[in-house]
Nucleic acid binder design. Structure first.
Lengths: 234, 234
DNA sequence: AGGGCTTTGTGAACGCGTGCACATGCGTGG
DNA sequence: CCACGCATGTGCACGCGTTCACAAAGCCCT
């Protein structure tokens, strides 16, 4: 009875690391590694070994003391927990540059997902082929979602259309949304939303970059305390 | 002296939210809003109001009690703190689908960044125009970085080339890397790296989706207690 | 001009995630 | 068959981030 996958709740922080473990285990498996220790996983994932063990222990006791983890078996368990034993069809809203890139993204279908449809408001784009899938009009979204039993939608529209796209997805019956548009979206309770904003990521980098620059400047000033005229530095 | 921007250390969690505030404040400013309360910001950013105030207090006491925050002024302060008073040139490695999408990404240059160069290993792509920028060969990366004083690099290659791209960026003198490739990269200490993996995001959604499905199934089983005889619930 | 209303800024408590350290338990070799 | 060694699994303490609750403080209205 406890073997059912909906076991205990897994901390969100762990859920966010499981895909990383999955990826690196996949790579190790391809190279022929059959057994792996938490230490090695930690090394590859750049995290603490104890954290790896704790994370994996949420899936069950699938390691062997004194030995480590069976790579293939562990892969399977993580996939199961993440719901990747099945292929999830995904619908992409927006067939622009970004939508096309996502549709053609290598690590997309290779990892448990397939493009179940692409829609766009622009009737110019409707009918064109993007990564092997024909672009449909956004009006057909609901039909597409129902026909393919799609529960995950990806927003790849300009920021101004993001909320409308999200609303359309929710209305169509999607229950998880991945938003790439540079504009936050809101969804009713019960809908899982994840935001991936390129400019947000860049701005975080910008912050650290500026910090580094400031630190350098401060160090220079400290080395040359003249405040006005500066002497030679080395 | 304390007005210098390199003031106190700001928690990473706050740094990750500042760009979100920045974006929504920008939107509000465009709509003509000149003053805004922490409550309103919280509403728009879907976070707690106290968190907003604490986050903003790290920048300084820029609010007016009983009134709120001056939108334009606050915008300026956040930009300053994030290092966005200047435009950061960015170099993109990989001129494939993803690289092209990123180069043409709307919320890119509009938010303090500009494409300082795009490089690719494929000499077929070299010389072509992507979003107004000519693709250079990856061998010219170091020169490009030096000439444009670039410190931020974006990896948009296939997963197999990600580490090589990152190494090339580091060798060229870049100190911050944003990685979109579906493969973790490692960089020397002192280099800031952020990973954005599409499949990781989708897999997290998949987890929640499966959870939802399990919850539904459990609810159904409970409602139809065929397993043993069960009494009515409620 | 002054009182009251509103909203900020922040001290303090809470909760979660992280990391340490060790007991548990399995494989292995003698 | 037993003893040793090694890696897992986990209780516990610590630290960070979140949240509450309230005092400080500015504006507006009377």
């Amino acid at each position: 009875m406890t073997s059912r996958s909906g076991r205990r709740r897994i901390p969100e922080a762990t859920v966010e690391r499981l895909p990383v473990y999955l990826r690196l285990l996949d790579e190790q498996f391809d190279v022929g590694v059959t057994r792996i220790s938490s230490e090695e996983i930690a090394e590859l994932a750049a995290v603490n070994a104890a954290k790896v063990r704790k994370d994996l222990s949420y899936l069950g006791s699938y390691g062997t003391r004194g030995v480590g983890y069976e790579v293939e078996f562990l892969l399977c368990q993580i996939k199961r927990e993440l719901g990747l034993m099945q292929e999830w069809p995904v619908v992409i809203v927006g067939a622009g540059n970004l939508g096309q890139a996502l549709a053609g993204y290598g690590g997309f279908m290779q990892r448990g997902f397939l493009v179940g449809g692409i829609v766009d408001v622009d009737s110019e784009k409707v009918g064109t082929d993007v990564g092997g899938v024909t672009v449909s009009h956004v009006d057909e979204l609901a039909g597409l979602v129902a026909a393919n039993d799609i529960s995950i939608g990806v927003v790849a529209t300009p920021g101004s259309a993001a909320q409308a796209a999200a609303d359309a997805l929710v209305a169509a019956g999607v229950s998880s949304i991945l938003n790439f548009a540079p504009h936050g979206i809101t969804a009713p309770h019960g809908i899982t939303v994840r935001e991936v904003d390129l400019s947000v990521e860049l701005q975080i980098l910008s912050y650290h970059e500026q910090r580094r620059a400031n630190a350098r400047r401060a160090a220079t000033l400290r080395a040359v305390p003249g405040a006005g005229r500066g002497g030679q530095v080395s």
